[in-house]
Amino acid sequence: MTSIPVSHTPQRQLPGDLAIWFFILAELTVFALLFIVFTVARINEPEVFIAGQATVHPVAGLINTLALITSSYLVAVGVWKAEQGEFRQCGYAFCGAMGVALIYVGTKGWEYQQLIAAGYNLSTNFYYTLYFLITFFHFMHVLLGMIILGFIARKSMQGQYLAGELAGIESGAVYWHMVDMVWVVLFPLVYVIH
């Protein structure tokens, strides 16, 4: 009898559903266009943008970046726990990620409130139009992501996922990491590069 050689090379697999990756690509394309518009506008109206950047709060931007990175870390830990079959732990990690994301929501809300109280709004000038448009668009993605994380956390803690069936958890997680990726680009564009 001849033995059939078995390949032990691990197969490279895409985490989550394929559909979520096409959705992420579409989202990233929209954000890429907004980044380019922001940069071009910054070059065309440097005085307006430098004056505008002086009114935003770099510490708030820093807090938000640290919060989103920590939240992303907790989500990655949650996925790893799910891979180990520890779905309750996964749920706790996702709840933690949502809690940390609330810091972002609170800080961003405070920043908007400060700017609006100081008399800045969408129509003040092109800097504020783009600032509010891009950051609020991202803010909406954070809120949607938090709803997804909450849904996954609840389902995990109720034991509704089966071992080995991680596509739903992974899809929610990669969406959240995409939100983090976008903010990583936004932070220097809005707060650091003057």
Partner: peptide, 11 residues
């Protein structure tokens, strides 16, 4: 983020 958090190093 892409390699470690998203897990694309194995993708």
């Amino acid at each position: 983020i892409v390699d470690t958090f998203m897990g694309l190093q194995r993708a």
